[in-house]
Amino acid sequence: MELTRRDAAAALAAVGATGGVALGVRRAGDGGTGDDGSAGGADGAAGDGEGDRSPSDEAVREAMAAVATAVYPDAVSGVESFVDGFLDGRLDGSAHAEGIRAAVAELESSARSWYDAPVADLETAERDELLRELGADTAEEDPHGTTAERVRFFVVNELLIALYASPTGGELVGIENPQGYAGGAESYTRGSP
């Protein structure tokens, strides 16, 4: 089942960013990412460089899309553009956006330490292993907690809420109007499609 940009917009609408932001408008992050998506820290250092504690928007997008391939079911396609569209609205300079950025930085740091490669360069199975070695599988989400708890909150659950609050994600489970998605006030009256 293919995730569409409509799904990304719907997921954004579910979690606090406007649909208008979702489509094609990228905002400059603190790292100074330009409209063309090129990475570049405020000090001119490469945004995705090793040891960078504040990855650029582009680095965050790459890492999140890579993690999504591990935490999303095989049945969905179009993951990269879906995550990209979702993050268009999420990386908006908010406190939450900075939480995502910091959690991705820690995830990247672990990937480089343990696998000597950024998350995006790992095999899908290695991404899964990395998350489990961090403890993100057994951790309960906590935006102020341990690394595992913050990765669970800002990376894993960020991606899962995006998927399962979207119509396509809902349909995978049997609900085309999942909680969080403004799917109208008619579907509840109907039997299964």
Partner: peptide, 8 residues
């Protein structure tokens, strides 16, 4: 601002 962590 989006996100659960962006409200007080």
């Amino acid at each position: 601002m989006s996100g659960a962590e962006s409200v007080g």
